[in-house]
């Protein structure tokens, strides 16, 4: 572990509230330890801004271990920054160089209005899940966990899809602002498991319809979502959703 310090120039999108017209502001940061995470670097900036009496940069974050999906911004054009399969909170400053200029923008999509600075409203993703991203079982009265064997490989495939953290980077990176990877992952997870079978068709129909209603764009198979996904979720899940949706529509 070699600790060094770097100086950075940040261009950050500042927007007072959802109605305000935002713009970029430039900040200089000196002596940033390369052991810091990206969000800790923003913390340092905010402490500095607070001491100067200016408004700190609002940004969403919570677990800071790459699993809650709350953080996220676009760094120099790439959602969650340059490291593959890494959320912003797990991105460390050692991946940047002395004198770098970092342009920090909020996740952008018609379906993600901006609340303030880098904080966006991703509730559209919740509404897609509410449309059908579940198995309709009430609490209690469920059969023994081992009553339906599931091949290990199937459980793993389902788990691949289920590891989605709902951060919205797929939407932010998609040139069309589409939420296909997010929706496809949930549809895949449940369509692969026996528990998901009874509602398989209704789920695919309802979730795709909800996704369209929220104002997400169409998928043109650009694969940007897969490339930025912090959990490495494959677009194979989108292919699976395509099949599921066609089956549900026609049969």
């Amino acid at each position: 572990m070699s600790t060094t310090s770097i100086n950075l120039s940040l261009e950050i999108w500042r927007q007072k509230d959802s109605k305000a017209k935002g713009d970029f502001e430039t900040y200089k940061l000196t002596n940033i330890s390369t052991d810091m995470s990206f969000l800790e670097m923003l913390d340092v900036l905010n402490e500095q801004l607070t001491r100067e009496g200016s408004d700190p940069v609002a940004f969403d974050h919570d677990c800071r271990e790459g699993i809650c999906g709350m953080c996220g911004a676009v760094i120099n054009g790439i959602a969650h920054g340059p490291e593959p399969e890494t959320t912003l909170c797990q991105l460390h400053m050692r991946h940047f160089n002395e004198g770098d200029t970092l342009v920090i923008e909020p996740f952008r999509s018609r379906a993600f209005p901006i609340h303030k600075d880098l904080v966006t409203d991703r509730s559209a993703l919740d509404r897609i899940i509410q449309a059908g991203g579940y198995v309709s079982v009430n609490t209690g009265g469920t059969p023994d966990g081992n009553s339906t064997p599931i091949p290990s490989a199937t459980a793993e495939l389902s788990m691949d899809a289920a590891s989605c953290i709902g951060c919205g980077a797929c939407v932010a990176s998609c040139p069309n602002g589409a939420a296909m990877l997010f929706t496809g992952a949930k549809i895949s997870q449940l369509s692969l498991l026996p528990q998901g079978q009874p509602e398989r068709k209704e789920r695919a129909m309802a979730m795709v319809t909800a996704m369209d209603k929220e104002g997400f764009g169409n998928c043109t198979n650009e694969r940007e979502c897969e490339a930025v996904c912090p959990k490495g979720i494959s677009i194979r899940n989108i292919a699976r959703m395509n099949r599921e949706f066609v089956k549900a529509s026609f049969f």
Binding site: E11, G77, E105, E224, A227, V228
Partner: peptide, 9 residues
């Protein structure tokens, strides 16, 4: 759009 136009792919 984004100020920095860059693709991850």
């Amino acid at each position: 759009g984004y100020k920095v136009q860059k693709r991850a792919v």
